[in-house]
Amino acid sequence: MKQCEPWQKDFFQALTLPLRGSSRKATELHPSDEGHSVEFFSIAEKWIKPNQVLSAAERLELYHRQYWYRILDSLAEDFPVLRKMSGDQVFWDLIEQYLLTRPSQSFTLRHLGEGFAVFLSKSEILNNQQRRWFEAIARIEYAYMESFEALQSALPQAADLENKMIGIQRHVRLLHLPVPADLCVDWEDFAPAYHCPHESVSVAIWRRPSGSSGIVRIPNEEACFLSTLAGGVFLTEFFTQLPEPHPEAAQVSSWFADWQARGWLCIKGEQGLNAFDIDEPWQEKQAMSSQAMSFPQP
């Protein structure tokens, strides 16, 4: 990689400094009367030309605001359940801390939340219980994004089950969670979590033929099967390799029937037709980035 230009390094550094003053007040971050840092002014003075109506710092601030407004909005939009569970104040504190420590590493804003769950699991502003639950919620919410844009592999026909390597579609995201965070969708706030048993659960998130997402709780035994299958197996060998005790044959058949009906199974390594029922009106948010966004009145 070539060396970065000094002016670019400084400019980017200024963008990632915390929002201040009126720019901050236009967001839902906790307000602060603190002005820009000496570093911000120093970068502006060094590289940016003032004009008749705006100082160098004011001009740089326009970019600073846009940077923050864009990433704050984008990340918040991707974690609505976490926002509901944590409450607005904690949520925005978490989002700001995360973005301060981890600027985007991807070409698309869809991936902005990639490291959010891990960040939450270590956050010092949360207690142990919040950490455990919020991390689990964030994993679920990010899995929706991963499922949304995942590759569609070929769906197996009956004959393929005998002679082809079978796996799980990449859009099926199997999560093993330390707490039943899938329940939070139906909760109005975090209060029920304090009375909820801390049992680990497995959930699968997948993409339906309409492109919309589904989530379902998976019993542990079935989840174990699915995890093994995800790596790709020949079914003729698969059943001889399973650890004892084997589930009942009828149970396994029932699982396979469910997976096939949901479109979870795939032929490993074969790309499938990316076909969807696009005539069905789209109800969900479509995770897409755009260069343009509204700019709150300064």
Partner: peptide, 19 residues
């Protein structure tokens, strides 16, 4: 089209684009 919106491996966005 905004290229980056369709730089995905699969999913409804690409299906709509194809259509």
């Amino acid at each position: 089209i905004i290229s980056e919106n369709y730089m995905v491996e699969g999913g409804r966005a690409l299906a709509v684009l194809d259509s």
